[in-house]
Design a protein around this nucleic acid. Structure first.
Lengths: 207, 207, 207, 207
DNA sequence: TATGAATGAGGCTTCATTCAT
DNA sequence: TATGAATGAAGCCTCATTCAT
């Protein structure tokens, strides 16, 4: 029982940590990473400067952990949408639905898009989605994705990892400017082209 | 004749400017942008601090102008390669050859890749390729590209701008990690998949 | 008892603050405000640069607080002199005695005069004498002065505030050059004329 | 004849000088003295940096000369007003009229007031009104004033210089805040008190 | 654990002044 | 005379990090 009940101190610690995460995210997205100082974060979070260093190594540390957390949340939601979709039998459709959900989330929260995209690259994602201190048990992760792709379909890809990789980069690259600056076209106009391109890429990668 | 000969002072100015550009590029690519200070730049360039501010507004200014210059150089080279290719009649082939040349240049100069990619987005490119103070007359530019696409082929795209945009983002996004970290696969392994994907995207966008 | 004893750290802070005030005053009065840098102040005070910014917003901040502190000290002393005077029944006499004390203090400390006068104006005085972080409890302040004038005399002025204002400006304006440069006449020669003028002004303002 | 006709070059020089004066005054009054740089002045005046140093020793030099010029202009106007007044037989009346004119000019041009007052003191005035390079022949000057006071009136002052001095300081000190900040009262409300005070001072100084 | 005062290196920028042209 | 490119000292301020409490 003792193992389950959290001590008051433990709860307080958790709360401090959460507040630090939340305020840091708020500041990174509004002021930008390089213009946010640790002073800003702790004063907003209502803790002392030294306390920050009890939880994080430095500013880069909290940023990377935030990317992992937020990226995970987004993927979890998109994953759920896919699983709740009715007409999602074929793999292509599932990918499109997943992508669409991610895009929609970014459209709803452009600050998040700005934050994630500016700091995103394959390395960070992989590292993030593997970091067990920030990802939730049971949630989405890349290993599961690969496995799922293999299991749920008869189709065989030359290299599913490369296919996914190319799709991820295509989507993240094109959507950033389209959502934030409506260039070269607004996201709604881009979507059909993009989805067609995704289908084309997938088709080209089938054995 | 007098009109052609540059005054001694003009020559000196030009030389200072070039040195600043070169040293800044060197430092940005080796130390990274945010860790390079203006002090670093000027001490390397052998000029006084104040001199920097005669030529540039601040660090961001010289960075953006560098991106424009270097991006232009890369495109010019790739463009030349395309024009010198023999079996480059079809548009898809020309695009593939252009892309291949750009990738090869980045493979040769990963520092450049790191610098360009970290700072690249659609807005910066467009702005950069339009800035007449840094681009060379007669060189490659986006307007020419669109025109060329229209003129040299019977094929009609639904939206050539979107097609190009998607290809640029796909290529820049995937190649960055592939070249620098060989993930998810080394660039040579990625290339065939990538070129196939490009052909697929183009095909999907044909009317 | 515990409430009275200051913690070691609090004592240290107070000491640092005092040292900053003292050294800044020393430098402002000897080198002049605009020629005194924050570097000067902190190196004289023996603290780090950043420490200055823990206590003051900038150079103007410490100057204004110094004016308030020093002005307060001067007024407190003059006020005391008035209250200890025997033949000071009539308001005019009290004002003359007060003024005389202020002038004498400036004669004794011309650096102070130079500092105060250069930076003095009605707005700063009022603000300064209202700033509770620098004025001492129980000391002189303008509200008290007005009240005192009303209470202690049968004489009624058309507008006591304007009367006081005119006297303050007359005294501060004339004494500055007289004390520092003995122009148009030395202060001792000016005094009788000045006191007569003050009496005349007061008389002219009686209802 | 050659002595009278100004050469083209001479005219150009004069023009440059005037432009420098005008632009410096404009900047000093709008941006403030310490925030105006020589770069500002010359770029506004359309001359090269080096040219400034052909005419002035430094920023303080041009400031002092400007005070003299502008102060002179103000006094000349006020002097003219006095001489054109009909009911200005008595000395007190003449002084009041003169003062009133000066105040009115400042009310019309508060930038000028700010500039003059911030930089004014007895020393500067005397020096300025004595500097023949900036004051116009035939205009107002202090020597004339003293002489005038002696000649035009039967009244004898104990010390006319001290009387004038006190009046000048009283007026300049009180009007500054009154005009600019309407404190302690707006200038129109202050005026009657002030004029009464002036009359009182003058009366108190009569032998 | 938690605090927050203190540090001081280091960043950016301005500007009076000089001097070769 | 007139120019304006170049200088570099000097100013202000920020901030990650430490450590005594």
């Amino acid at each position: 029982m003792a193992g389950i009940t959290k001590s008051k101190i433990e709860v307080k610690k958790q709360h401090k940590l959460e507040t630090l995460y939340n305020k840091a995210f708020e500041l990174f997205t509004t002021k930008g990473f390089s213009k946010t100082s640790i002073s800003d974060i702790v004063s907003n979070a209502g803790v002392a400067k030294g306390t920050f260093y009890l939880y994080f190594k430095d500013k880069y540390d909290i940023r990377n952990k935030l990317i992992a957390k937020k990226g995970q949340e987004i993927c979890n939601k998109a994953y759920e949408v896919v699983n709740n979709s009715e007409n999602a039998d074929k793999l292509e459709d599932r990918v499109i639905i997943f992508t669409d959900s991610v895009i929609n989330q970014f459209v709803e929260d452009t600050l998040m898009l700005r934050f994630i995209a500016k700091n995103l690259n394959y390395g960070v994602i992989h590292q993030a989605l593997a970091d067990e201190t920030v990802t939730e048990a049971g949630g989405f992760n890349i290993a599961k994705l690969y496995q799922h792709v293999q299991e749920t379909t008869d189709v065989r890809f030359k290299s599913p990892e490369i296919a996914i990789y190319m799709i991820v980069e295509l989507v993240s690259g094109t959507c950033y400017t389209s959502i934030l600056e409506e260039k070269p076209v607004p996201i709604d106009e881009l979507k059909p082209h993009l989805f067609e391109a995704i289908r084309a890429i997938m088709a080209s990668q089938i054995i």
